[in-house]
């Protein structure tokens, strides 16, 4: 009440007459709105820009790997297959027990890059690779973009072979990549950004499944494909 009387007494008399009650001081309201907007904008900046920047760390992979180059069957022997799928499986294959081998180990690389002294190409990355990994026989500590937490079970063969889902459906197009993207990790959870997706809002925009890999996404796809029974907890959890 004190404020009201103050504003009514100190400000210019209102011209809007009947539209605005006398006790409302438009000046003050304007100030309120300005400050509200300032706070609002600050919050939006914090929430949409600063928070994501702080939340995620960005790290380059220990070395680059040129997928495009290695998938060129004119350059690299052993990349067999007519479909992109089969080409992927040249290096990311299924083991005999149906499990997925994931990112190849060093011995796959040394099948061709066997001599640390004589690089096959000219790229400085290859020289570094030979010196840092091939010679000391050290595995490359890759960051895995699509690494799921330990509580998640995922069968690649069930999706790729039995479900006939292309690798790119979930992983996007890596095959034409010349440079590996940065690995973006959530500092709080330790999850790769690929799980939550690049869209920090968490709202599903229905672009492609390669955007993100949350539980809801798995369930949605199962439902869309008429595989509701695979939404039982134990299908994807261990």
């Amino acid at each position: 009440m004190k404020n009201q009387s103050n504003s009514a007494g100190n400000g210019t008399p209102p011209r809007t007459g009947d539209l605005v009650p006398k006790w409302i001081n438009l000046n003050i309201v304007a100030q309120d709105i300005s400050f509200f907007v300032i706070g609002l904008i600050a919050a939006l900046i914090v929430g949409w820009a600063i928070f994501p920047a702080l939340l995620y760390s960005k790290q380059p992979q220990p070395m680059n790997f040129n997928h495009a180059l290695h998938l060129d069957s004119e350059i690299v022997d052993g990349i067999d297959g007519d479909t992109p799928q089969e080409k992927c499986e040249s290096c990311h294959w299924f083991r005999d027990d149906g499990s997925f081998s994931g990112i190849p180990k060093l011995d796959m690389c040394t099948g061709c890059h066997d001599d640390p002294e004589s690089p096959l190409g000219e790229a400085p990355e290859e020289k570094a690779f030979l010196v840092n990994y091939v010679e000391p026989e050290k595995q490359i500590p890759w960051f895995v973009y699509s690494k799921q937490p330990d509580c998640v079970y995922f069968s690649h063969i069930a999706h790729v072979k039995m479900g006939e889902i292309a690798c790119t459906t979930c992983h996007g197009d890596f095959a034409s990549n010349k440079k590996l993207p940065l690995y973006v990790e959530n500092r709080l959870t330790g999850y790769s950004q690929s799980i939550w997706g690049k869209n920090i809002s968490g709202i599903y925009l229905n672009k492609t499944y390669a955007d993100r890999m949350k539980m809801d996404d798995c369930a949605r796809c199962h439902t869309e494909k008429g595989q509701e029974q695979n939404n039982a907890c134990f299908v994807c959890h261990k």
Binding site: D97, G98, Y153, S155, K161, M162, K238
Partner: peptide, 21 residues
């Protein structure tokens, strides 16, 4: 106890590898 549910998953993977459901 989960009835060793992961063994069901293991067996399914093996079956898939052999083109069976």
């Amino acid at each position: 106890c989960t009835f060793c549910h992961h063994r069901l998953m293991r067996a399914k993977n093996q079956a898939y590898a052999e083109d069976r459901r």
